[in-house]
Design a protein around this nucleic acid. Structure first.
Lengths: 191, 191
DNA sequence: TTCGGCATGTAAAACGTTACATGATTAT
DNA sequence: ATAATCATGTAACGTTTTACATGCCGAA
């Protein structure tokens, strides 16, 4: 129920075309809300119809015109209304956790394959963490800023960093656990 | 794409009726995969049609008959196939993070309301953590077990515990950040 | 006698994913 | 030439959510 609201926040931070928005949802906003360009175009249309957004058509040489979207006062007050409503509990969907409990019903070969998969997954999260830390150094060099927008963006980024660190530590715990079940598949000489 | 697989894991751990399954998805399995009873009944039907499950009808006095579902060999091998496939990256949806960044576009009163909401949210997570820790003491008193099923269930629970602890620490960071924006709304005498 | 729990479902609406479609520009 | 990037969309399909529906039991 809140792709609209994520879009409102992003466009208030900086107006953008649908395409630019979609890329933001692949990058910074994607840390806490994912969406594809198809979803975004559909929702932008609805938001324009509801008078939450206005578009400014900008002609470009050699490229199709783009519509740069901005938030209207109506959209802004819709955001404020939503901001002040209770936070819904998150719906958790963690596929890897299902697989780990499922590993009890596979054999040692299957668990060895899962170990390899967890290692790959761990490497992805390590890369994500490195990207967050680089972004933090780049965008928030001064941690004592009193500027509201930057302080809030920074605390959300710190949440992403804390999440990735927690995941990495847990994946190490998972790998230890899986390897102890089938010592032959373990890679640690001295457990 | 894997409510089916979460159901297979749960029924392999212990056969159950649709209703009992739905309650498990409210409790233990709900830690890493949520589902409502409507979804579960529909998927159970499809899984029966695909010969992944069989039902045993059990008559009950005074209550409607219930169907107790068990996994067939076909279902078990479908699970193993899925277990060995690559893990999909998680789709992140964190409403609270959207609200925190959105708070830059609300006034001090709105941010004070958000502080109150974050405090409530934090209390929920504290209760969840307490529940996990109680479950850990109850179900895994011996952390040195070599029994595969228990070891895997335990490492998933430790993941939930690590997640809740991370969330609580981050929410404290969020509260500090919000209070520094509008010192008047803060409750800490000595920040 | 009203509420919560047990037990199972249907229907409609909203949301999300995948595939398809177009067409120019820039880099390899 | 080929692929990637910019830029916008439609169509079909599948999943999820919300609301509705039934009916019995036991406790307050």
């Amino acid at each position: 129920m809140s792709l609209e609201h994520a879009i409102l926040v992003s466009l208030l931070e900086q107006p953008a075309s649908g395409y630019e928005l979609a890329r933001r949802f692949d990058r910074s906003i994607g840390r806490f809300w994912t969406a594809t360009h198809q979803q975004i175009y559909r929702v932008l249309k609805r938001m324009e119809h509801d008078d939450w957004l206005t578009a400014e058509e900008i002609g470009q040489e050699g490229l199709p015109d783009k519509k740069v979207w901005s938030v209207t006062p109506t959209g802004r007050s819709a955001l404020v209304t939503w901001l002040r409503a209770p936070v819904q509990p998150e719906a958790v969907r963690h596929e890897l956790a299902v697989k780990i409990r499922g590993a009890a019903f596979d054999d040692a070969a299957g668990r060895a394959a899962l170990v390899a998969e967890v290692e790959r997954y761990r490497a992805d999260h390590e890369a994500t963490l490195a990207g967050y830390l680089a972004g933090e150094r780049r965008d928030f060099p001064d941690p004592t800023t009193r500027e509201a927008r930057a302080a809030l963006q920074h605390v959300v980024l710190r949440g992403g960093i804390a999440y990735e660190r927690m995941v990495l530590a847990w994946l190490d715990d998972v790998l230890d656990t899986l390897r102890h079940l089938d010592p032959a598949t373990g890679r640690k000489a001295n457990p």
